[in-house]
Nucleic acid binder design. Structure first.
Length: 721
RNA sequence: GCACCGUUAGCUUAGUGGUAGAGCGCCACCUUGACACGGUGGAGGUCAGAGGUUCAAGUCCUCUACGGUGCACCA
């Protein structure tokens, strides 16, 4: 019997165990009425740490969807997993343990097993937290991105894409990559964050005989200049175009060709810019257009190479800059020095400066290359997937953002110089020759013969994540799961990984399976605190969901996160909100006490003749069910949850129960039975409606309801009609 | 520079053309036999500003202000 106040601590573990033992999280074990498949893959949390409020929100929304669809009679599958998150995990590991990877130069395996151990520790905690949230995940299908299965999938995908020419090795000299000096790896365009800073724009000439003044914020790169570019329409410079001048910059001899290129802005600086093909993407593109040579002058440690001047060789770039500026001043070559606004690029993970430089033997996914046999590029496929309506993004406005991003997409650099991750299935015979040319073989296993070695680079972590929706279902094998559950029904995730992840999954799925990976993308927002600040450790406003759950109960936390959180919008959490839904849990409990107290001798399956008033309440209930169902079907969980809250508390408890108290004490047996039946009926219905949102308490009470022939668990009870 | 979003009660927000709604908080009263993690009642809004469309605008259009986000540029 229900008694006292609701105590979530006594209930939650017990109920979760009951569910796990029932087996119903696994769709194969659901009763026969569950036929039509419904599937979601859980965005696998990074094994970098424990779950945060954002993950809690994600679990709450997805579990609500899955439980709802399961009750509606769907064969509901929700696949759990975790992500090794190569770059994030390795960076965090090094930082936390104060380890330098260089100390393990010849002990790669040892290093990896250390990171892996760290990852697995986090993983086990994350999996526990998911259970604490009440997530109805099918644990029998649990995956990890470094599992053998998934790793094989990654290799297979690489091989297929390479075979089709969609993965290619870049030509080092003119392939300028974003080099993270601190993290010692290549990063992709979208792994860079720009920071607005004041910078000095220097206007000077290379030497006193050079005819043109150029402007730059980075004089130290000028050792690599092979041209000066001007706008072809610029009258000031028209006559110089096509001529080549010898120059001496500090002690370094340069040969500078004057080129006309329409990309040059006449109004910026002097309207003439030194072209440094090795240290700027735009300059490299110009170099290709104008057939210019390219010389690297900054190395991978962010220091000046020997190919510069003895004055600066070996110095860090900023030190070199000072030396150069002083030299220019002394030689009277510096014309002007002005402060301008500039965006300094930094690596998102390590915080290190990004140094654009050329790098050999890097692999790229070509997004603008026609796919053999399809006559379309990856970019076009990505756009078509959404434009055709095969994928719907909620809220709709993110479709525009998506198109905008895809249209501006450049080739995806997938080689990373870190160790924790999927190693490229690429083999070569060391030593690699000088220059770009390299004989290599792409293969699952070491090729026949002597001397083969595997590339030391690993793949961008998003390459692996991009395969997740079908890798988890068994691709490349044609499994039952793949046949039944792919494309998945809904992909639910935070909007800040729309590009990183969602777009990549669409890319991969379109190329490898020729299908979209999911039908609906439901994007949720960021979780903020009461003061509208982003929740982060550095702000000290970090809220631990597990902590909150032990204080207020998982159901309360889930409701607090869902009510008022409409699709795509940021949400706020506060203790007040948690408390409010903890109180609601208790209200449900106490109402249950009252209903059960008066349910003696009532058989809910046998509707008695209802009083006029009670019949009216029943009609209202049915209208209410229809309304809530409609909201659930259109992903308006924030609305449905609030409606049920309101109906339960302010209609059922405040109005109906209070009124029926009289009838229950009435002399009139018919009136009494009508009232008692009505209360039990509405109460049981509310438990069902509330179950997707507040699974623990509703299940706990359901187990005690005096209903004949009820299901073994509320989780497989039918959604009310 | 381009784009997107937001601006409704003290706070969080719903409301996708027809008389301003909810939750929390606040105030007053009530220890009534489910519940004080409760009940009853109540105060509180010129829907950011200006203009327009319409019989009718929080809702559609234009502009402005403020706040936020994304992308691009970054010589």
């Amino acid at each position: 019997m229900l008694e006292g106040q609701y105590d979530s601590k006594k209930v939650e573990d017990k109920i979760y165990k009951l569910w796990e033992e029932s087996g119903f999280f696994n769709p194969d074990k659901l009763p026969a009425r569950h036929k039509k498949p419904f599937s979601i893959v859980l965005p696998p949390p990074n094994v970098t740490g424990v779950l945060h409020m954002g993950s809690a929100l994600m679990l709450a929304i997805e579990d609500t969807m899955v439980r709802y669809e399961r009750m509606k009679g769907k064969k509901a599958l929700w696949i759990p997993g975790t992500d090794h998150a190569s770059i994030a995990t390795e960076t965090k590991f090094l930082k936390e343990k104060k380890i330098f990877r260089n100390d393990y130069m010849n002990k790669r395996d040892e290093f990896i097993s250390m990171v892996n151990e760290y990852a697995l520790q986090n993983q086990s905690q994350i999996l526990r937290q998911m259970r604490v949230m009440g997530a109805s995940l099918d644990w029998s299908r649990l995956k990890f991105t470094l599992d053998k299965d998934h790793s094989d999938t990654v290799t297979e995908a690489f091989i297929q894409m390479h075979k089709a020419g969609i993965i290619e090795m870049g030509t080092g000299l003119f392939t300028i990559i974003n080099w993270d000096v601190k993290g010692q790896t290549v990063v992709n365009d979208d792994e860079i964050e720009y920071q607005a800073e004041k910078a000095k724009l220097y206007t000077f000439r290379y030497d006193k005989n050079f005819p043109i003044l150029i402007s730059t914020t980075r004089p130290e790169t000028k050792f690599g200049d092979t041209a000066v570019a001007v706008n072809p329409n610029d009258k000031r410079y028209k006559n110089f175009i096509g001529k080549t001048f010898d120059a001496e910059f500090l002690s370094k001899k340069l040969s500078i060709k004057i080129i006309g290129d329409p990309s040059v802005d006449q109004n910026f600086g002097t309207g003439a810019l030194g072209v440094t093909p090795a240290h700027s993407k735009i300059d490299a593109e110009m170099a290709i257009r104008h057939n210019l040579p390219s010389y690297q002058v900054i190395n991978e440690y962010g220091k000046m190479s020997e190919n510069t001047s003895a004055l600066v060789t070996g110095k860090k770039t900023v030190e070199a800059r000072d030396i150069i500026v002083n030299y220019l001043k002394e030689q009277n070559l510096l014309e002007k020095e002005e402060i301008i606004d500039q965006n300094i690029p930094r690596a998102q993970r390590s915080g290190g400066i990004i140094e654009p430089l050329p790098k050999r033997h890097q692999f790229f996914i070509r997004v603008n290359k026609k796919i053999p046999g399809k006559n379309k590029t990856l970019k076009e496929l990505m756009i078509d997937s959404v434009k055709s309506g095969k994928i719907e993004i909620l809220p709709k406005r993110f479709e525009k953002t998506y198109f905008n991003w895809v249209e501006n997409l450049r080739d995806w650099s997938i080689s990373r110089q870190i160790w924790y991750g999927h190693r490229l299935p690429v083999w070569y015979k060391p030593p690699a020759p000088e220059g770009d040319a390299l004989d290599y073989v792409v293969s699952k296993t070491k090729p026949e013969g002597e001397g083969w070695e595997q590339f030391s680079d690993t793949l961008d972590t998003w390459f692996s994540s991009g395969l997740w929706p079908f890798s988890t279902l068994g691709w490349p094998n044609s499994t039952n799961d793949l046949k039944q559950y792919f494309p998945t029904s809904v992909l639910e995730t935070a909007y800040d990984i729309l590009f990183f992840w969602v777009a990549r999954m669409i890319l991969m799925s379109q190329f490898l399976l020729g299908k979209v990976p999911f039908k609906t993308v439901y994007l949720h927002g960021l979780v903020r605190d009461e003061q509208n600040r982003k929740i982060s450790k550095s702000l000290g406003n970090n809220i631990d969901p597990v902590d909150m759950i032990s204080q207020y109960g998982a159901d309360a936390i889930r409701m607090a996160m869902i009510v008022g959180t409409s699709v795509g919008n940021d949400s706020k959490v506060s203790m007040d909100k948690f408390k409010a839904y903890r109180n609601f849990s208790n209200k449900i409990w106490n109402a249950g006490k009252f209903v059960l107290m008066n349910a003696d001798g009532i058989d809910i399956t046998k509707k008695p003749k209802l009083s006029k008033e009670d019949a009216k309440y029943l009609v209202e209930l049915n209208k209410f069910i229809a309304k809530v169902t409609k909201q659930m079907d259109s992903f308006k969980f924030y609305m449905a949850s609030e409606e049920i809250y309101h109906y339960f508390w302010h209609v059922f408890c405040d109005k109906i129960i209070e009124e029926k108290k009289r009838d229950i004490l009435s002399e009139d047996i018919a009136k009494r039975n009508s009232a008692k039946w009505l209360l039990l009926e509405i109460y049981a219905t509310c438990l069902q409606l509330l179950h997707p949102f507040m699974p623990f308490i509703t299940e706990e009470i359901y187990q005690q309801l005096p209903i004949k022939n009820k299901k073994s668990c509320l989780i497989i009870e039918e959604w009310p009609k």
